[in-house]
Design a protein around this nucleic acid. Sequence first.
DNA 1: GCTACATCCTCTAGCGACTAGAGGAGCAAG
DNA 2: CTTGCTCCTCTAGTCGCTAGAGGATGTAGC
Lengths: 144, 144
Amino acid sequence: MRKDEFAIGEAARQSGVKVPTIRYYEQIGLLPAASRTEGNRRLYDRRDLDRLAFIRHARELGFEVEAIRTLLMLQDDPDQSCAAADAIAKARLVEVDKRIASLNALRDELLRMVKQCANGRVGDCRVIETLADTTHAHGRLAEA
Amino acid sequence: MRKDEFAIGEAARQSGVKVPTIRYYEQIGLLPAASRTEGNRRLYDRRDLDRLAFIRHARELGFEVEAIRTLLMLQDDPDQSCAAADAIAKARLVEVDKRIASLNALRDELLRMVKQCANGRVGDCRVIETLADTTHAHGRLAEA
DNA sequence: GCTACATCCTCTAGCGACTAGAGGAGCAAG
DNA sequence: CTTGCTCCTCTAGTCGCTAGAGGATGTAGC
């Protein structure tokens, strides 16, 4: 193994993506199949590490794998228009804004529940009572 | 079918929980197994509808099924102390607060990316560039 | 060379909370 | 009596990993 080549464990350490996750990314085609040593071990180079860091950062920002696939294709072709990348990022921003708004509403309701709980019997508990309250509109379920 | 009994479709309409989801809740024991008609169809009464509404509201607030299982047990025994319910709600509040903070950070970064995008070539695109930037600490991945 | 031990390989199955679809039976209205 | 809706069970799929079995390879010390 040359000094500009890395085993999967080393690639994991440097990129911050776990070993099984790297293999998973290869399997779903997000990473090109790595070259192999004689003993069938995967070998990664700088470019691979960069790609892994790109993916990790994009995942941290909550982009879905399919979006990342597109972003990677765009990155590989630097003369293309940036509009597609921009659209993906903007869509993600809209999602995040919605999510924040919805979580703020949840937070308010949880705060109200918790504040009013006198820590007495369940029969008088505001937490349980609030949940049992049937006067709610049918809203969308919250993720996470 | 008496007028205080409902078929699963009607229960779904009234509770806001979808038909397959009701069956799923029965399967995992969140809902007691419904009684059946001669023709093997599920029958629900008011109490079941209340329980379904309770579950739906709790899910909307992001409580996990296991937490809801506990909350339902508490509800069924109104002389117990409310402390457990309070603890569950407080834990959820902490999660939501963390989530909001993390999403606000994401939002900032996405905003920066999108604002600086001049909609030119990918080679100059801030969106792609930011993602490719390897000078990041290894943080936790964001859900949703 | 030999022995530990770490690291790697592939493969399958599991997570949470549903959702989708196949293939069939029941039921109410015209 | 037929049309069309609702219902039944069962299995498999979703997303993005994660865990574990069972075995091969590589490396460091003796």
